[in-house]
Design a protein around this nucleic acid. Sequence first.
DNA 1: ACGATCTATGTAAAGGTTTACATACCATGG
DNA 2: CCATGGTATGTAAACCTTTACATAGATCGT
Lengths: 341, 341
Amino acid sequence: MSNSTPATIEDVARIANVSIATVSRAIHTPEKVANSTRLKVNQAIAVTGYTTNAMARSLRLGRSNMILVVAPDIGDPNFSNILIGLENEARSHGYGILIGHTQNDAQRGLEYLKFLNSNQAAGLILFTGILPFGHQTMTARLPPSVGVFEPVFNGGIPYVGVDDIAGARKAVDLLIAEGHRKIAFIGDSRTRLAYSRRRMGYEAGLDAAGIGTHLRIILEGDGTIESGRLAVEQLFMRDTLPTAFMCVNDQTAIGVMIGLKTRGYDIPEDFSVTGFDDVPQAVFMTPSLTTIRQPRTAIGKHAMALLLELLSDGEPPETEILLRPDLVVRNSVSAPSRARR
Amino acid sequence: MSNSTPATIEDVARIANVSIATVSRAIHTPEKVANSTRLKVNQAIAVTGYTTNAMARSLRLGRSNMILVVAPDIGDPNFSNILIGLENEARSHGYGILIGHTQNDAQRGLEYLKFLNSNQAAGLILFTGILPFGHQTMTARLPPSVGVFEPVFNGGIPYVGVDDIAGARKAVDLLIAEGHRKIAFIGDSRTRLAYSRRRMGYEAGLDAAGIGTHLRIILEGDGTIESGRLAVEQLFMRDTLPTAFMCVNDQTAIGVMIGLKTRGYDIPEDFSVTGFDDVPQAVFMTPSLTTIRQPRTAIGKHAMALLLELLSDGEPPETEILLRPDLVVRNSVSAPSRARR
DNA sequence: ACGATCTATGTAAAGGTTTACATACCATGG
DNA sequence: CCATGGTATGTAAACCTTTACATAGATCGT
């Protein structure tokens, strides 16, 4: 019973007094097996404590029950919660998840490609916007794949992301509702679709409010805290200071806040600030940061669901799924100060 | 060449004009193969783009090249960085990592146990201090395992953690060096070895400084922000207020800071506060939190290295590895205020 | 020159599963 | 009572690898 080597299908067959084929059928296609037989088999399984050897099964079936998740940086705090969504969805469908990180290193990417080619994963979830595997010739061999956050440029692969335009729109609408008209947008010049979309949301909001282009101040940074701080410095050189800073992400917003505070200004009394992402620190800033929350767990869940659909149907039901991000109102936004209005 | 079905060892053998056994040997034990033959095989491998089918290999060898990592909560921001350490170490030894989270749910634990029993993982890394699998009878079937942070109580399994006593000692020594003598310890009553060890470090530090027990104030919370806030409230009811709060973890410290600030006190002017863990938010608090940093990536690396050793040698080289945590000095500690000294 | 030893390679079994195909039985309809 | 078809089960091949054992040729010591 508590034998050292795990029970095989043959042990079960012997005890149930049937053939191994019948055992396999009793497990996977029970409707093809007589009731009485099924009962015998189930008892034998209980007695032996049998569990299917996944290696043998995968070998025979030619596909594994693992999904490879490749991210540029699994240490990213954003990553954890998406992982939860991915894992929950996968497990509830009998899949496990394997994780790998590339650190934007092509060499690493290749290692994972080998991994895929050795049949160890049935599907692939990609966080990088670009296939981390150098040569596009390989693409033919890629298993069913789904991108997260960004469309995968060189792959033609469906992806799950967030509706950045709508999210940015919520932020800018809040600022406008509070009475701001001179709103600066601190962007990110790196070519990621998300960033340009957030800027589009900003512009759309101002358009809708009838705020002319001469009131728009747009600076492009690189999404880091430092670039936020720098943006503030640059703006103080100009004539027209904004009353509010709408930032492309929370990092930039944090930098902006630091920049403003070191110049002695109060937030939100003197300037309002908004971010995007709702990173864990956002709530601990002083003042806490009003921002747009990425529905991280939901993103993971949807990405995995899409992939599983791909694995069974073969055809992607849709090529782009955009989730609606929520506005999180905290304390970094108020009406513009009388002095600067 | 860019065939639809991946190349097998047989394809390589045919092209190299040798037997499959020779191909296998050329790959895994090249010294047993003539130079000329090895060359032919390597060329054939290059031509076919062959990669070993991991399923077949695992089946034959009776063990996989995957390590299962089970954590109670993979969304924990502490987790990400440990994951990096685990993944790097594993990959560089040809292993991949599978991750699972139990959410402290026994049902989930059992699913992973099945997973292990179906030979899908060669080893196990456990974050929970308790085997998440109900019945101890199963333990016999567990693959080589290593615990992280906490010894695994019902398993007799080696673990990698942090020297909590030494860490706590660093915090208390800093406070004492700054001139504090009335130092409160806000603990965590949940039975985790880490928590009691941190308290031991606190006591040892006071002992060494010759600070009598009558000056010691010890409160046990539950490690949450709320319990930190509550501890402050409770202390304000007492006669003897401390000049410094040494907290069992950063969450508690954050709660303490909130509690003190809502009562209108300044940190560190009126009270000093220390934490433990160095969570990502610690640096963003106002004032930024002086705390003890867990060497997370190193913990992951060591845990995986220990497990891999176990997998090859069979015997655990040591049963407990404690890493040295570092003091991170920020702005929540200063000399005690003259008024309260 | 011959047995012994060594080196390089090949043959074939084994690992645990799934499933196409074969078989055996039973029921149904004429 | 026979042909037909359906249902339940068994047989055996296939998935791809690794490796014990067998073989064959070369080298060497006597």
